[in-house]
């Protein structure tokens, strides 16, 4: 039984407080969307959860399966079952996608156990086919020279290969045209299951037409100011964020 709880989370960067007591509970098997205007703290939340060292957590906790993520190193969080799909994935020159994913999979094996290379390649090719990715991307350096859409597909490929218990998608729709968006959303939807949760961070409602959430939360000034069903996203699209800010 997996669970993700964000409890009264406070975080700052360079002394500026960004998250101001954020509370959120994502039960296993559900898809929660976080929407919010620019600067509301959406990406900060994603990076704090993954453990980016630029951010300082000043209060609260994030519990994955009951364990505090904040106590763990970045790599431990991933092995514990957290996955962050980056808004701006890093480029790693000279490291092929295949070697990178092998290392990530190897890190999950007990010491002394080696990956079955044949099975690994079969799996990666199957998943690339599903995402409409050319197989030559296995040999290319991680994200180097990839278009925006290719990078996002590569994020979803990694998610598929690592099978996390919770995935945080940070603005996965940015930089995607509608065809790429559909493919990426199909990949995410294929991953939806009763034992995997998603936190979908987005500025626009558009993505939620393709990845339909169970719940929508509105983040403003570092706090969740409204939660509701997927219809809340449509309402926001129509009325804009100011509508909630004013109400607040």
């Amino acid at each position: 039984m997996s669970s993700l709880e964000i409890i009264n989370l406070n975080a700052s960067i360079n002394g500026a407080e960004i998250l101001k007591g954020l509370n959120l509970n994502v039960p296993q098997g559900e898809v929660h969307a976080i929407m919010g205007p620019n600067g509301s703290g959406k990406s900060t939340l994603a990076k704090v959860m993954a453990g980016h060292e630029d951010y300082e957590v000043t209060g609260g906790d994030v519990l994955l399966n009951g364990k505090s993520l904040l106590e763990m190193e970045v790599d431990e969080r991933s092995r514990e079952g957290l996955f962050l799909a980056f808004q701006y994935p890093a480029e790693i020159p000279g490291v092929s996608n295949a070697n990178f994913l092998r290392a990530a999979r190897q890190a999950r094996l007990p010491e002394g156990e080696e990956i079955d290379a044949v099975a690994f390649y079969k799996e990666i090719y199957d998943k690339m086919d599903q995402l409409g990715m050319d197989r030559k991307f296995t040999g290319r350096s991680v994200n180097e020279g990839f278009s925006g859409g290719e990078k996002k597909r590569n994020e979803v490929l990694q998610m598929m290969m690592l099978e996390p218990s919770y995935a945080v998608l940070d603005e996965t729709d940015s930089g995607l045209d509608i065809d790429a968006l559909k493919i990426v959303a199909d990949g995410v939807n294929a991953m939806r299951s009763d034992n995997r949760g998603f936190l979908v961070i987005t500025h626009y409602q558009r993505l939620l037409d393709y990845i339909v959430p169970d719940y929508v939360h509105v983040l403003n000034d570092g706090q969740i100011i409204r939660s509701g069903s997927k219809d809340l996203a449509l309402e926001l699209e129509e009325k804009g964020y100011d509508w909630l800010k004013e109400e607040d």
């Binding site: 993954a50 790599d75 969080r77 962050l84 890093a90 990178f100």
Partner: peptide, 12 residues
């Protein structure tokens, strides 16, 4: 780069 690789579970 380091953060990205580590975020996939690969030790530092």
């Amino acid at each position: 780069e380091l953060f990205y690789l580590m975020s996939r579970g690969i030790e530092e």
